[in-house]
């Protein structure tokens, strides 16, 4: 069953127009994507292609100008308060900028506990136990719970954001360039962890990135977006190299070699 379906989504941004005619940009045009339960769907494109707008529409942070976002078969525009509550619990997001996604004045314990407290009442001990459990899941330790965000590196903070996203046992996680700015070792570590989690819990991922190597390696299907339109679908790097889609070919061609090639 599809956990998420995008049905002909279009989004237009307007700009200017105070004194004259403003211009408008078609950020997204007729996007159709379906994410099945327990699967990973990738969205790839160059910067400015509309990838992040898509992520924001899925999360309900922006309204599409046309089309429907269906979560578990129900249009999110017609959600009741109860539906939203469930949606906010089951759909989580991790953004690229980890430092901008956490409150600098809060301890890690409070940061990770915040979503839990929004939905459940828990004793302090239980809460602490749960947070430490989550921290250990992402490879951090219990002493980290009482530290502040500035005491961590970018990679550690990104793992904290992932721990927070996992705190409500979500069914769908939107990863918007979540590993792009990390060091290679940590990228590999996080991707491996996310894959393991998927095998254990059957969570679905919508993986937004510009790195075709990682996306095709991680996801089951990948949609290529260019100028707001889905231009093609791929499943592997090899297929991408042979594609008819010029954008896809260019993305595949600029993948750097895994091994040194001597001439």
């Amino acid at each position: 069953m599809n956990i998420l379906e995008l049905d002909n989504i279009s989004k237009i941004y307007h700009r200017g127009g105070w004194f004259g005619r403003g211009s408008s940009i078609n950020a997204l045009v007729d996007i159709n994507i379906a994410v099945a339960e327990g699967k990973s769907v990738g969205v790839i494109g160059r910067s400015g292609a509309g990838k992040s707008t898509l992520g924001r529409i899925i999360l309900g942070l922006e309204k599409p100008d046309k089309g429907k976002v269906k979560y578990r078969g129900k249009d999110i525009q017609r959600f009741t308060k109860e539906d939203w509550k469930k949606f906010r619990q089951e759909v989580q997001v991790v953004f690229q900028n980890s430092l901008g996604s956490v409150n600098p004045k809060w301890q890690i314990l409070d940061i990770i506990a915040e979503p839990i407290l929004n939905f459940k009442t828990m004793s302090h001990q239980d809460l602490r136990k749960k947070v430490i459990n989550l921290l250990e899941m992402v490879g951090l330790s219990y002493d980290d719970a009482n530290k502040y965000p500035h005491q961590f590196s970018g990679g550690q903070l990104q793992r904290i954001c992932i721990a927070r996203a996992l705190s409500l046992e979500p069914r769908l996680i939107v990863l918007d360039e979540a590993v792009s700015s990390l060091d290679m070792l940590i990228q590999a570590q996080i991707l491996k962890f996310l894959k393991k989690l998927q095998n254990q819990t059957g969570v679905s991922y919508l993986f937004i990135s510009h790195d075709i190597r990682i996306v095709t390696g991680f996801c089951d299907t990948v949609a290529v977006i260019n100028k707001g339109r889905i231009t093609s679908q791929v499943t592997s790097l090899l297929q991408a190299e042979k594609s008819d889609d010029p954008i896809l070919r260019e993305l595949a061609r600029s993948v750097l070699p895994a091994l040194p090639k001597r001439c």
């Binding site: 290679m184 590999a188 991707l191 190597r213 095709t216 390696g217 790097l237 993948v255 895994a258 091994l259």
Partner: peptide, 19 residues
Amino acid sequence: KALLDAHFSLYGSNINEVL
């Protein structure tokens, strides 16, 4: 060796093709 492992694992399921 650990770095190389991480490097190859980033290619995920593509690894056989790129090698």
